[in-house]
Structure formats: structure tokens, C-alpha cells
Simulated scan of single mutants.
Amino acid sequence: MAIRVALVDDQALVRSGFAMVLSVEEDVEVIGQAADGAAAVDLVRSVPTDVVLMDVQMPGTDGIEATRQIVAEDLARVIILTTFDREDYLFAALEAGASGFLLKNADPDELVAAIRAVSGGHALLAPEMTVKVISRLVSGSAARIESTPAPGMDRTTRTVNEPFEPLTPRELDVLVLVAEGMSNAEIAGELFVGESTVKTHVSHVLAKIGARDRVQAVVYAHRAGLVARPTA
């Protein structure tokens, strides 16, 4: 089955451009377009959707609130479209449940790869943008999280809930490397194991910490203090 994609942006030209790029992909189908967040929520409620490409700044209901509603109702996964001119919007979108970010000037191949990755339950964790964003997100939001022990850590800092099951030392290693923005292939090389083994570890980690995808795992790891936050 084709990946069903909804395009949400207040600029018709942007939506048309993305639709044109996706129209040549056999495994991607644009099921509809919306010019604001409220229309986007209505669209994915009425038409089965796998992935939403969501702008942030729109009149009326913005992309953050639309993302929150879509994720809360488990209607689709959301990729935030951004120019990074308002990072505070991006942080809020992550907390709302977005599965990742894509620059509006991304190459067509990047757009398609992002849609396929998110549809498959993965996330957009490009080290050059997402890790920095998430680090700043959790730095500002940690104080709002209930203080409980971090998983597998002998530390006095308590910022996140314990996992449903204890993480093994290897799973903890994998979580840290995921939080540093590494792909499965890169983690396999770092730990000298097969990529299929890494996939298994990642799946176990997500299940144990109750994360929907790698984005949530990265947020969890940063909140737990497992990864040093950048100073810049």
C-alpha cells in the first residue's frame, strides 16, 4: 500500500511543490491538502492518513496545536516543516508529539526518505538539527517533569520516570548513541555488532521506556542526563 500523506501549509505554492515532488513516487499518495491546522485535523479525521507534512506558522489553528490533536487521537505521524526562524515553535511541536523535522528547502530525495522513515515508525534525527533542538527543548522543560530516578544511572539527578523494565548495559549504550544522533548503521559500527542486532536493541529500548519513536527516546535520554547538552 502507498504511504498516505497530507500536506499542510498556508501557502498554496508550497503545497503544490511538495505534491508535485511526491506525485512521481509509486509508494506515496497525497490524500489531501489543508491551509491551516484546523482543516488539517478535519482532513486526517475523515481520510486515513499515515504522515502529515505540517507547517508551524499558520493563521487560526497553528501547526503545534494541530500536531497535538492529531497525535493525541493517533490519527497520523507528523513531520514538522520549518525554516528554523522560530525555534520556540519547534520545541513546542516536539512536546506536542511530532516525529521529526524537515527543512522546507530539503532536496526531493530527502523529503521522500523522511516520509518513508516516519511512516515506518522511525524519526527524523538529523544530527545537525534535531539533536540540538531536542537538547534545548529538554533543558527548558525538565523542571516541569516529575522527579523520579533515571534508568540505569547511579546519579542524584532525577528528571524522568523509570523504564517499565530495567535497561541492560547494552541497551543503555544504544540509547545514548541514539540520543547522539547516530543511525542504526553507525551504532552497529560503534559497538561492533550487526545492524539487525541494533534494531532489536532499539525496539527493546523504546518498549521499556514507553517511547513511541526515536525522537521520544532522544528526549528521554536528554532528560535523564545520559547525554551532555551542547553549550551553544
Rank of each mutant, 00 (worst) to 15 (best):
M129P: 03
Q57P: 10
G181M: 09
A123G: 08
F18I: 10
G140H: 07
A224C: 06
R15P: 07
S46V: 03
T231Y: 14
A217I: 08
V198Q: 04
T67M: 14
L111E: 01
P59L: 00
D85R: 13
L94C: 14
L125C: 10
E110C: 02
A35V: 04
L175V: 05
A123R: 04
D62N: 12
T148I: 06
V112F: 06
V176K: 14
G140W: 02
Q57Y: 14
T83C: 00
P149R: 00
A92C: 07
T157Q: 10
Q11N: 09
M58P: 13
P48C: 06
S119P: 06
G181Q: 09
D154T: 08
G17D: 02
G210K: 03
E190R: 12
G63L: 11
V131W: 10
I70F: 07
V202C: 12
P169S: 13
R4E: 00
A72D: 15
E165R: 12
M54D: 09
E171R: 01
A150P: 07
V28Y: 00
D74K: 11
F101H: 02
M1I: 07
E25Q: 13
V44H: 08
S23N: 06
R68E: 03
T231M: 13
S135W: 01
A106P: 01
T130P: 14
A93F: 01
V205S: 14
N161R: 12
I145N: 01
G152S: 08
Q69D: 09
A150C: 12
S46D: 12
L125S: 07
M1T: 13
V178H: 06
A40I: 09
R68N: 02
V51M: 10
V202W: 09
G189D: 04
E186K: 11
A34T: 07
D42Y: 02
G152V: 03
V78T: 11
M1P: 09
A35E: 09
A40E: 09
P127M: 07
P127F: 07
V219S: 08
A114P: 02
A228S: 12
A113T: 13
T148E: 11
A224W: 02
D173E: 14
I209F: 02
T61P: 09
K132D: 11
Q33V: 15
T83I: 02
P151Q: 00
V71W: 09
